[in-house]
């Protein structure tokens, strides 16, 4: 068994188990934490597919930024209300199951019954080449140097702004 397959099994187990744990927890905050683990597992799978850029953005954007937002929303909205909400409206559960079933069937179809489009494959190799860290770094520091630096200033301004709005003592 090669290392790649071993890693694949490890990452897929992490993803699947954390996904199951996520939907079975009763505390929404713990569910959200399992979702982060799930994202990390998926990022590993992307790395095995040689999609380095997507793996990195998966960690930075999803597991980092978006999950922080999720957690804030959950904490602000007080999840106990949500529980009662679902108990009060059992029809919503049927709706949720139906949507999950549709997406599941789509995946089954895509995996076992559909053929990959042939025109797609040359484009796919191209996208894999441009998705490597080297290719992106080269673009960032040559053609896109100015937007890169400007984005730095954007983040700086946002940081300074957040600091004044949140920390500054106001008489």
């Amino acid at each position: 068994m090669s290392l790649e397959i071993l890693l694949f099994i490890v990452f897929s187990l992490i993803s699947v188990i954390s996904a199951i744990l996520m939907i079975t927890r009763s505390n929404a905050v713990i569910s959200a934490l399992y979702l982060i683990l799930n994202f990390a597992g998926l990022a590993g799978l992307y790395l095995l597919l040689n999609a380095q850029f997507i793996a990195v953005t998966q960690v930075i954007v999803y597991a980092g930024a978006i999950m922080v937002l999720f957690l804030f929303v959950i904490m602000l909205l007080k999840p106990e209300h949500e529980k009662k909400f679902l108990e009060a409206k059992p029809k919503l559960k049927i709706f949720a199951v139906a949507i999950a079933a549709i997406i599941f069937l789509q995946l089954i179809y895509l995996l076992f019954f559909s053929k990959p489009s042939e025109s797609l494959s040359p484009e796919m190799t191209k996208s894999i080449d441009s998705g490597t860290i080297e290719a992106i770094g080269k673009q960032l520091y040559t053609n896109y140097l100015l937007p890169f630096e400007a984005a730095g200033f954007l983040l700086l301004a946002a940081t300074v702004g957040a600091l004044i709005l949140a920390k500054k003592k106001i008489e």
Partner: peptide, 13 residues
């Protein structure tokens, strides 16, 4: 886009 965001975020603050 980056210029617009830099300006707008500064304005919100």
């Amino acid at each position: 886009f980056i210029g617009l965001e830099l300006m707008s975020i500064s304005f919100y603050v």
